[in-house]
Design a protein around this nucleic acid. Structure first.
Lengths: 209, 209
DNA sequence: TCATTTATTGATCATACGATCAACTATTCG
DNA sequence: CGAATAGTTGATCGTATGATCAATAAATGA
């Protein structure tokens, strides 16, 4: 049973409903992970029949993949907003790491971990993951190139270091999901490694944590 | 229906059966991941009623956690066997990385990714993951300390570098599950990062890949 | 106001899950 | 050889999944 005094069940325009389904799926995924997405869980969040959700989505795998894609794209936009206006390249790098490792962010970490785990069996999700990773990678690359240009960091392989940055962040946030090590230790790990990758004086990033 | 000419259903001693259940669960996990473990999937692999599996296991979460624990412990033993007899500390480090990144190993990668993903909802699995990670960490630490002692690598924080090693390996193997980057790129990434963490001449590890 | 369109429902199918337990039967022991 | 022991079955309960579709009812236009 839904709410006893159920609203008289409104009828919406297809694109409106489509958007509502997508939004609900995103909220659900952010709350309980990609594995929590089901026709019924989404439908019940919308107070709607499960058939309606199915009516708008070709398959659960597609819905899962597109939800992942959208959630991660929004996150990238939000992180940019927090990072891009920092004064120097080093500040931006610092803020990027701080933001990505923020414990408040573990809803996102869950989603990434789900993507890697479920991706093995869901090709569409795997594809979405690859493409999203490329977006993030090119953002980190952009930040690193700027920092190199201003002379605050030094590397001959910004692409590789950008990859390394996410390798460190991704594993570290996955560790957080099982409470391995403390936030402080995980932060230290990432920052010390980045210092070495970027020819920074020891502690210059770590001290900011 | 099982095989039509079913064997006359043997009765085994409890510890024998217990071991058979555990072994079957391990094989299944190695084939299809931790998420593929269910009373019925295990029972059907054994040609046995699902109730039998339940009879020997307190709960699926416990079975999942203990299966994970065992699979990962065996893996550590196997890796040690491949690595420990290398002549120098640097050789052992090289072999460790090579082995951990071996594409043949992706059954194990799946299991680790499953553990981080499922661990958020399965406390016993999360605990098993933490403890297993500690075992692996202390093994890497051991290798690094020996390499430091022989003077082939240099670091003031072997614990941190051991953590970093797995951070790189774990993310990289998760990437492999969704086919992000090539084995070669993933290898490069880990090796270049380790070189910098260990004060090694550029390429000294990477060239071995 | 009535007819047309179509968003939405709700039931249904086939399948899967963990868990529980009385009944059955293979084995062992007296 | 018969009885006690205990490993094993198979059915069952409650719940969950994705997918499909006829029927319904809300909105729109004539």
């Amino acid at each position: 049973m839904t709410t006893s005094t159920g609203e008289p069940r409104r009828r919406r325009r297809p694109d409106e409903r489509r958007e509502e389904v997508a939004q609900t799926a995103r909220d659900l995924a952010l709350g309980d992970g990609l594995a929590a997405l089901s026709l019924r869980s989404i439908a019940s969040s919308m107070n709607v029949a499960s058939g309606l959700v199915a009516h708008y989505e070709p398959s659960m795998e597609e819905l899962t993949a597109s939800t992942f894609r959208h959630v991660v794209a929004v996150e990238l936009t939000e992180v940019r907003a927090l990072v891009d206006d920092a004064p120097t390249g080093l500040d931006r790098l610092d803020r990027l790491v701080t933001t990505l490792l923020d414990p408040e962010r573990d809803a996102l970490s869950t989603i990434w971990a789900d993507a890697w785990s479920l991706g093995r069996r869901m090709p569409l999700l795997a594809r979405a993951a690859r493409e999203s990773m490329d977006s993030w990678h090119s953002y980190a690359r952009e930040i690193l190139l700027a920092a190199v240009a201003e002379g605050s960091v030094r590397t001959t392989e910004p692409d590789l270091v950008a990859l390394e940055l996410f390798a460190l962040v991704d594993s570290t946030t996955a560790y957080a999901l099982v409470s391995y090590r403390t936030p402080k230790e995980r932060n230290q790990l990432v920052r010390r490694a980045l210092e070495q990758a970027l020819g920074l004086e020891s502690g210059i990033l770590a001290r900011r944590a």
